[in-house]
């Protein structure tokens, strides 16, 4: 366990981009995993194209990139269980909660804004 000097802050990682078009999603996940070692109050938000990061049935063979989507299923093992998905972002893309590979809380954009306002640290990817 990394030393945070007893300080526990609310960290939110905001994922806004599709998983393979740029490296943001993958490198965001790397920060999330490291943050678990610091015993902080971590949550993840998925909005805009970021909702595609959580879709089932990702296949990356054609683009010769690593399919890192199974890692989202492992987050529970790191005690990272607060995953929020923007309802409007799903709807705009013809997706529903059934299309996602992990259990999430679907929230409205307005609720997402409230969640962000509660945070101490917001890292946006």
């Amino acid at each position: 366990m990394a030393d945070a000097g007893g300080v526990v802050k609310k960290f939110m990682f905001v994922n806004r981009k599709s998983p393979y078009g740029t490296i943001y999603a993958l490198e965001s996940l790397e920060v999330v995993l490291i943050s678990a070692a610091f015993d902080q109050d971590v949550s993840l938000a998925f909005l805009d194209d970021g909702v595609y990061e959580l879709t089932k049935g990702q296949s990356t063979k054609g683009v010769e990139m690593k399919n890192f989507s199974p890692t989202y299923r492992a987050l529970e093992g790191y005690d990272i269980e607060k995953l929020y998905v923007a309802q409007e972002s799903l709807e705009e893309r013809g997706l529903s909660e059934d299309d996602l590979l992990v259990d999430v809380q679907v929230v409205s954009r307005a609720e997402m804004a409230d969640l962000m306002a509660e945070q101490d640290v917001v890292l946006s990817f």
Binding site: A2, A4, G5, V7, K9, F11, V31, I34, S35, A37, F38, Q40, D120, V121, L123
Partner: peptide, 8 residues
């Protein structure tokens, strides 16, 4: 970890 530490 240095990033998370900076956040803390």
């Amino acid at each position: 970890g240095q990033l998370v530490e900076a956040g803390i």
